[in-house]
Design a binder for these strands. Structure first.
Length: 617
RNA sequence: GCCGCGAUAGCUCAGUGGUAGAGCGCAUCCAUGGUAAGGAUGAGGUCCAGGGUUCAAGUCCCUGUCGUGGCUCCA
């Protein structure tokens, strides 16, 4: 496996080189930046000067040129030059970006600038001092500075396709020149490339922004503003269903709902420390009546500490568990906004536990069990990352407290049979945390929520309880949102399900299609609707003057779980043959069932939140 | 925030300086139907907003708004 991975890496690297070769053939003035291997291919950053703009329309031309290079199957020739000669080469070749890289290599043995923080970028400087020699690769007429490895000749590069072009700053710094980044996809053979392209195609079909439009779930408006989606009746059902479930999973363990206002004096965040850290992300609100400086709340924990601190607490009162599903406001950079994944008004299914140190494990246990059940119910694989502190002094709280807390987190994770991995140095400065990573139906992993221990806010807000011995002690805070933000969760969930929601979340659970508009049909349909509503079901009647075939098609497109057609047969027999959405059943054929029994079964499926139907099972 | 691309009917989109279009949806009428599109007719437009160029701008230029791809992967 590792050998194949190495081979694929060399292929992709070689393709970046070939891309550069082709670009040089087409635009001899091109200045080249870096051309690394990435997840599913490679890219190359290229500066063609302010005049030339490469667009996707140029891809066929570039691909054709690349194909020529590949066809000629020229050997990749590797050679080394002393660093000073290499710099001279870059000057002669008029490659200022390469020259800059080489000068960095000469100076520090790495191209990663110190101020970029190599560790943070996930790269390690590969020399601890100045380098003496650097390597080059050459394919026929084009020579490129490159560490390699490359495949032996240009013919052995597998299957590729240029994917997109975008702007990128030289060395990721917006103060630097903007270059054009050409991305390519590359795989060992055409089959794997095909599979990847199909996956991208599938992801496009499932795009929550597209489905949100098609299924009438949420809308955006120029007049409301960027990053401020509004939810339609259907979308609001989705929100309510998932939020209610998330709440239920905690309310049964003693969490109590609280409510806090959406604007607050900024003093609260000065006390919590958020003002100093996130001040520029807060929306400011001006009072016309008082001199108060208010902000829209960006989070809820400081408020919850105020409720906790509103009365003296005994060790007997702990844990105190608050739950609030509420909207927070954050002024994100406009370029970061998109669909529901990143918004400026985000609704958190937030909760905070205030407990004693010795209660951490038990409390984490409750939350993990809830998360486990939530993600099992929505059918997403869950694994967690235990994020611990490292040995630096960047953390607040005593080392003993940290050690104990980390152990308790781990115990709880093990007790819940969670797939986990541990990572040091990933903790927040105020406490260790558990990150939830979920995998969706097409294999993409998303981080949705975290459980975080917090030793800092209790301190900053002077929280306390009276211990058994009469002394004042500081509680620990546990932050948890199971869904994360509802908007972001829905963006993932809509794509995970491709809009085919299970009965419990489906905005419309049953659609009743009338065969005609006769009085008896209308009356029967109304009776069924009445019964369904009494059972808490969401049923709509399609009594439009259209053909049955057309109405069924409409129900299919709306991805309604159950469709029943009602005409004379059903009225006289009292039975229906439900049309079951394909993903919900393993049985190809549907069977007739009494209408009351049908409704009861669906109602039961909704309350038990199953993904598959038991009908005709 | 920065760079690229885009915004035309409710939706998806065509329209390359000279009379605003199609399909779907919607409305009306005919057909009264049986498990993925029955037929006909019709209504529907601030061509994102503001400014400019031009005899003439949906179309070209500038600014803004909104959307979208990227700006993290290090020779």
């Amino acid at each position: 496996m590792a050998e194949q991975d190495d081979q694929l890496y060399a292929m992709r690297h070689s393709l970046a080189h070939i891309l550069a070769t082709a670009v040089q053939h087409l635009w001899p003035e091109a200045k080249f930046g870096v051309g690394p291997v990435v997840d599913s291919g490679f890219y190359y950053d290229i500066d063609l000067g302010p005049e030339v703009k490469i667009s996707e329309e140029d891809f066929p031309k570039i691909e054709a040129e690349m194909a020529k290079v590949i066809e000629s199957n020229l050997p990749f020739e590797r050679f080394e030059k002393p660093i000073d000669e290499a710099i001279q080469w870059a000057q002669e070749a008029k490659q200022p970006y390469k020259e800059e890289l080489l000068n960095d290599l000469k100076r520090s043995g790495t191209t990663v600038a110190k101020d970029l923080n190599a560790a943070e970028l996930g790269t390690v400087a590969d020399g601890d001092g100045a380098v003496e020699n650097v390597s080059f690769y050459k394919d026929g007429d084009f020579t490129d500075l490159c560490r390699g490895p490359h495949v032996e000749s240009t013919g052995k590069v597998g299957a590729f396709k240029l994917h997109r072009v975008s702007g990128a700053y030289w060395r990721g710094n917006e103060k630097n020149a903007q270059m054009q980044r050409i991305y390519g996809l590359a795989f060992a053979n055409p089959k794997y490339l095909r599979i990847h392209l199909d996956m991208l195609e599938e992801a496009k079909k499932r795009d929550h922004r597209k489905l949100g439009q098609e299924l009438d779930l949420f809308v955006l408006s120029d007049m409301v503003g960027s990053g401020l989606p509004m939810f339609t009746p259907r979308g609001t059902i989705l929100r309510d269903e998932v939020a209610n479930f998330s709440n239920l999973l905690r309310q049964r363990s003693g969490f109590q709902k609280v409510w806090t206002p959406h604007i607050t004096k900024k003093d609260l965040y000065e006390a919590s420390g958020h003002w100093a850290k996130f001040g520029d992300e807060l929306f400011l609100v001006k009072s016309q009546e008082t001199s108060d400086e208010l902000v829209m709340k960006p989070m809820n924990c400081p408020h919850h500490t105020r409720i906790y601190a509103s009365q003296p607490r005994s060790y007997r009162d702990l844990p105190v568990r608050y739950l609030e599903t509420t909207t927070d406001y954050r002024d994100e950079k406009t370029g970061e906004l998109g669909g529901l994944s990143r918004v400026r008004a985000l609704t958190q299914d937030d909760s905070h536990v205030f407990c004693r140190n010795d209660q951490i494990e038990q409390e984490i246990n409750i939350l993990l069990a809830a998360a486990n059940e939530l993600y099992a119910t929505v059918g997403m694989d869950l694994r967690v990352r235990l994020s611990y502190r490292d040995d630096t002094d960047a953390y607040l709280g005593s080392p003993e407290l940290w050690a104990s807390a980390q152990e308790q987190l781990k115990n709880a994770v093990i007790a819940n049979n969670l797939n986990y991995f541990e990572q040091t140095g990933e903790a927040a400065f105020y406490g260790p945390k558990i990150d939830f990573m979920v995998t969706d139906a097409i294999g993409r992993e998303h981080q949705l929520a975290t459980v975080q221990l917090d030793f800092v806010q209790p301190e900053r807000f002077g929280l306390e309880y009276i211990a058994e011995d009469g002394s004042k002690q500081q509680p620990v805070m546990i932050h948890c949102a199971l869904l994360g933000s509802i908007e972001r969760f829905l963006s993932v969930y809509i794509e995970h399900t491709a809009g085919k929601f299970p009965v419990w979340v489906a905005p419309e659970q049953i659609r009743l299609i009338s065969v005609n508009q006769e009085e008896a049909t209308v009356k029967f349909a109304d009776e069924v609707a009445w019964k369904a509503t009494a059972l808490g079901l969401r049923l709509t009647i399609d009594n439009t003057n259209e053909s049955v075939g057309k109405k069924i098609r409409a129900a299919e497109i709306a991805k309604v779980p159950y469709t029943i057609v009602v005409g004379e047969k059903e009225i006289s027999g009292g039975e229906v043959v439900p049309r079951i959405r394909k993903d919900m059943t393993v049985q190809p054929e549907s069977q007739a069932i009494g209408i009351d029994e049908f409704l009861k079964t669906v109602a039961h499926e909704a309350t038990s939140r199953v993904q598959k139907t038991s009908l005709q099972g």
